[in-house]
Nucleic acid binder design. Structure first.
Lengths: 248, 248
DNA sequence: CGCAGAATTGATACATCTCAAGCTGGGTGG
DNA sequence: CCACCCAGCTTGAGATGTATCAATTCTGCG
């Protein structure tokens, strides 16, 4: 099914789960009403490709629920993930026609979309949208630069630990609290997708996860469910500064 | 001398060399006049640190002339360059107090600065500034993501070739033409700085440059001046798609 | 001239990749 | 209900690319 059931998708912005973090976060009631007029929802099943790099893209939008990946591929097939899209993340670039990356749904995915032209027009007249998009883009740029350090300078073990730290930090952001002590989460990615994120092979990912398990930095139930008995230990393994690394 | 001679710095925005590409690019005459009122220049000598990561930063600004690097460092000294700042590039983040990265002048450097608070206030009232900053940030994000592919998936030789391609592309952007055929440029970085950019050691950088020279992909005069007899050959060595990879 | 920083080159070590063989768990059809 | 299958994963052994350590060689400059 190309467009899975939409009945559960929110239709009213005021109960939207990403209302306060997405590109519309700063909009007031009037502005929201205009956005509401041009929005529509799309759903994708786990594994579906949302957009191919290079394709014409006539919409932009926000992830409402589910997870997607942003990847870049070389001709010979080497691929690098360049972004992990979680709920509230923005997809697409105003002012550009073609998609620069592949977007693939990693889980079932619901997106809130806007046709590009009307959205661009709206941006001209509604500063709150551009302001929020700037904020979000600056955050993504910081994330990309942090990831450059991971890719360029960290060992395989540090990379795996860094990935787990990032996932835990992003989850903690939702709950508005610092991660610490004993924590639990599910890996949203296959070993292969982790390898593409980390610039490793899937075998190396697997070996390093096994090593972290053997040394009890993490505990595993099944392949995906992870328990971190001591977050600061994980931070150490990631090679991060002991402080949260958070910036005002 | 902490603040080298400023006499050559432009004082009138209308003859500023970066007038049409910097954060002020979209401002009209009135808006420019306001900006002109709060701007000031700073100069740095080659090698000087402009900002230390974590330091309080009371200004934002644009590179007017010269080159600077943006780097991130781990406690044990491993460092990764996360950005190369050329004329017109923007430094600093509105809405944040501390610097996230080290900024170091690689050559003599002139910056056009704005105190942060007045600049932030101006952004609220002058949409053209925010719009331009959004555009520039999106471009930087694309550059960072392209670099993630380089760091995560390319071989040492491809990394060196990619660096040269990027430098040539950025120079070509100034002249508004696609690079092709026989080209010439100066490496703006030491071998060590290249290593920090590419996630390699300086020895590996040196060896790969020697190899590219031996195989006549490039010719060297001195350590810094490079001639590329055939740009498409360099592109191939970089592992890039043969087309320019340019996006609308 | 001679020094210091930058770069090159060599020998060896080691982390990660590659290729290959099995394992595991959840789903399917007989 | 069980046997089978298959994608995802783990583990092993050996190859390889890059790092590390060390010794020279350049190059510009006081």
């Amino acid at each position: 099914m190309l467009q899975p059931d939409l009945s559960l998708a929110p239709h009213d912005c005021s109960d939207c789960p990403i209302r306060h973090r997405a590109v519309c976060a700063r909009c007031d009631a009037d502005e929201l009403a205009v956005l509401e007029g041009i929005k529509y929802y799309r759903s994708y099943e786990a594994g579906q490709t949302v957009i191919w790099s290079g394709d014409r893209m006539d919409f932009v939008g926000s992830v409402v629920s589910g997870i997607a990946t942003l990847t870049q591929t070389m001709e010979d097939g080497r691929t690098q993930m360049v972004g992990l899209l979680l709920p509230s993340d923005f997809v697409g670039r105003p002012g550009r026609d073609g998609a620069a990356y592949n977007v693939v749904a990693t889980s079932d995915l619901v997106m809130c979309c806007f046709r590009k032209k009307p959205f661009e027009k709206l941006m001209e007249t509604t500063p709150h949208i551009g302001q929020r998009l700037l904020q979000m883009t600056l955050d993504e740029l910081d994330a990309a630069r942090e990831w450059m350090l991971v890719l360029g300078r960290k060992t395989a073990r540090e990379k795996i630990a860094s990935l787990m730290v990032i996932i835990l930090r992003r989850e903690a952001t939702l709950n508005m609290k610092e991660p610490s002590g004993c924590l639990t989460f599910d890996l949203p990615l296959t070993r292969e997708a982790m390898a593409d994120y980390l610039g490793l092979t899937l075998e190396t990912v697997s070996r390093q996860i096994s090593a972290l398990k053997r040394e009890e930095v993490i505990l595993l139930e099944g392949k995906r469910h992870v328990t971190v008995p001591d977050f600061s230990r994980l931070l150490e393994e990631a090679g991060d500064d002991s402080d949260g690394g958070m910036l005002a």
